[in-house]
Design a binder for these strands. Structure first.
Lengths: 408, 408
DNA sequence: AGGATATTGTTCGCAACTCAAACAATACCG
DNA sequence: CGGTATTGTTTGAGTTGCGAACAATATCCT
């Protein structure tokens, strides 16, 4: 039951009905390919006649293409339709504190090439270097491919509308108009987004197989910080200033440990990798937080190693991991009470220890959740191998092609 | 950029374009009445021809009606259009711990009659009594009016789809199918909702004048508990189990004071009227919470009185109020970081003391908010005189008439 | 082998819709 | 009282979904 915004509405034109149906058809092909025209007509409750025209238009636009004939128990064999993604490419960039990840993939998120290198912190050099790498990547890819844009994600605050990085403390970037600079250097469209929200976009737009279809979820990425993205009704929650969804900085305890953001007791301060390590080593973050972070990042000893030790019988490591699990659960419970999503996706290094902490997490959730139904909210752990941030960067460019037209 | 849900979509039919445009026209009339056809055409960027037909259909449906001629500097005088609300009535019911409020109003939320009486806790008696009161109200109203339904709000968890009250601890109601019972007793359509969310609906659908138009906001109602409603893109956030938006139970401190919900340190436990009173009297809620609540409710001494004392120079009262203000601000800051709404509406008895606490609230917000832009989020205090809960109950019945048609 | 049957994809007349332009109905103004 | 501006209606054209008929193609059954 949505209220029509009388200050910003979209009247239906002559072509609106067809625009809507064409987009629905496109998305059905995307999620059910290969699929025949007759099958589309059945799923859409339209006549085959209309669907034929819709498909013709989508082919003319170069969005789908006909493939081989399919099998049928009886009657004429169907012509199967496929999404045209293989020659529509995207460059995805994930800038992190230590290293930068660069991926070339197609519109379905399929990885074609990937490379990683030490992050360049000087903006002009970063742009110049990245532009050169993109050129090389496209050259190596050969002809017959078009690159439709660069998606870039950073850990920090981003104004998605203007493409400006407002504040990325981990990189030391502040008020950087990265979009304009990068677009000028490469001649490509550039979209920028916060890495937590981008991961949510990847889950929404570029997930494979069974994971498809959730339209109300919260994505939680636990690594250096805790990044989150909230998806409501198939749309990422961005907020007035494009800074919505910062669940990492909700307080668990106003007098708790110091957080990177300057406040005390943020969820992130209890559950980030740094927090877990601090618990193990007995660091006092309230005193020397940022310095510790840099030491930890640069040192070889990561949370992953700590988890190995926990598995190997190191009781202190196990205790630290479990405590993180408990706070993870308490935060998740709050999120469930606030958003009541269909499910929660959990990502980050800590998920490697999922079978160690699952019981603790679920126990903490049960403790603070308000109803029995909410307690049954599924928690899905996503594999770190899939590069969610990079796929999210790709989704920035690919998604607009498939998004619902704005109406009413 | 919304993703189309391929499991639950709405194909555009022959009549979809007109359905959309008719709803837009209806809403424009609603928010700009009196308005002429020509004016509608200009606002909608449609030709007057189409608008004429749309208006004709809306009149045939009995949703709008023609009024007097308007003034024009030159040329033919316009025929002004009005929403037909005066003879479409709604019964709004607000059940609270001490008293029940019953209002008869029209589709625009205009109050026609209001009464209040001691809450009847026995369900069968409550239903029987309410049905009798509704009959009497309608009889007194006379002929020529149609009652289109009953909207009922309660403090507690409600499944809006089934109309069942899951758990309303303040009333002692649990798993009550109030909708079926009340519909059977009155023969009217019945919709049930949580009172915090209903208030948000009232703000969205039945606000007057300048307040019209916000489509992304959080409504915070501070009274016995802290009820909240989140509106995103002109739609109330309900969540999978219809329990979303329980910001009252987000923790400020995991080891904080005991809350009605059974957890510790909920925002509500710091800012509800009971919490404010406890601070003044030095009650220990962790020990004897529910009993205290009943005592406080039944006693004549309310938060309002405490605020008077604070104004009168009672330093202890002032301190208690200011502390509530501080925690109010800390919670609001978290909400801003999570939802980043266009604005925040604040309601409840504590708003009487707004000029006392505003500075403290804003200070606390500035302390925890993550960006300068977020710090500028407007906070609008709504008058208690307007019965937000009752208007929300009315909105439950009235809103579906005006809501955007589901498409794509 | 060949007709019955089933399925796919196209075509065509019809109804519903937006759109542009012409039109009748007012009202004001010099 | 004619010129002009504005409102609201009408009319024809272009676009769309709908239903039914159609051709093409495959399998099944005799």
């Amino acid at each position: 039951m949505r209220k029509i915004n009388t200050r910003d509405f979209h009247v239906a034109k002559r072509t609106t009905s067809r625009d809507i149906n064409r987009h629905i058809a496109l998305n059905l092909v995307r999620e059910h390919q290969p699929i025949s025209r007759a099958d589309l007509a059945r799923r859409m409750n339209l006549t085959r006649g209309v669907v034929s025209v819709l498909v013709h238009e989508l082919i003319a636009q170069g969005l789908i293409h006909e493939g081989a004939s399919g099998e049928a128990a009886r009657g004429r064999k169907p012509t199967l339709l496929h999404i045209r993604t293989h020659d529509r490419l995207v460059v995805a960039v994930d800038v992190r504190f230590t290293r930068t990840y660069l991926m070339l993939c197609d519109f379905s998120g399929r990885q074609l090439a990937i490379e990683t290198y030490d992050t360049v912190f000087s903006i002009p050099e970063f742009v110049k270097d990245l532009a050169a790498r993109v050129r090389k990547l496209m050259k190596r890819q050969g002809l017959g491919f078009t690159c439709e844009g660069i998606g870039l994600v950073v850990p920090g605050m981003v104004d998605q509308r203007t493409g400006k990085i407002l504040n990325a403390p981990a990189l030391g970037w502040r008020d950087v108009d990265i979009r304009t600079k990068l677009a000028a250097a490469t001649g490509l469209a550039v979209l920028v987004e916060n890495s937590g929200r981008a991961s949510a976009l990847a889950q929404l737009w570029l997930s494979n197989g069974e994971a498809i279809g959730e339209h109300n979820f919260v994505y939680i990425s636990v690594s250096d910080g805790v990044g989150t993205g909230v998806v409501v009704n198939g749309e990422l929650l961005r907020g007035r200033d494009h800074i919505a969804g910062e669940f990492g900085h909700m307080p668990l305890n106003l007098d708790g440990p110091r957080c990177m953001c300057g406040n005390n007791g943020c969820w992130e301060a209890y559950t980030s990798n740094l927090a877990t390590l601090s618990r193990y080593f007995g660091w006092n973050l309230s005193k020397d937080g940022p310095k510790r972070l840099q030491d930890a990042e640069r040192s070889a000893f990561t949370v992953l190693e700590m988890i190995s030790r926990a598995r190997g019988g190191d009781a202190k490591a196990m205790a630290a991991v479990l405590t993180t699990g408990r706070f993870l659960g308490l935060g998740i419970a709050t999120i469930i009470n606030l958003v009541n999503p269909d499910c929660i996706y959990l990502a980050g290094e800590i998920t490697i220890a999922w079978n160690l902490i699952e019981d603790t997490v679920r126990e903490a959730i049960a403790e603070r959740v308000l109803t029995e139904a909410a307690n049954r909210t599924p928690i899905r752990v996503t594999s770190t191998q899939e590069y969610p941030r990079l796929r999210g960067a790709a989704a920035l460019i690919a998604a607009p092609t498939f998004a619902a037209p704005r109406v009413a």
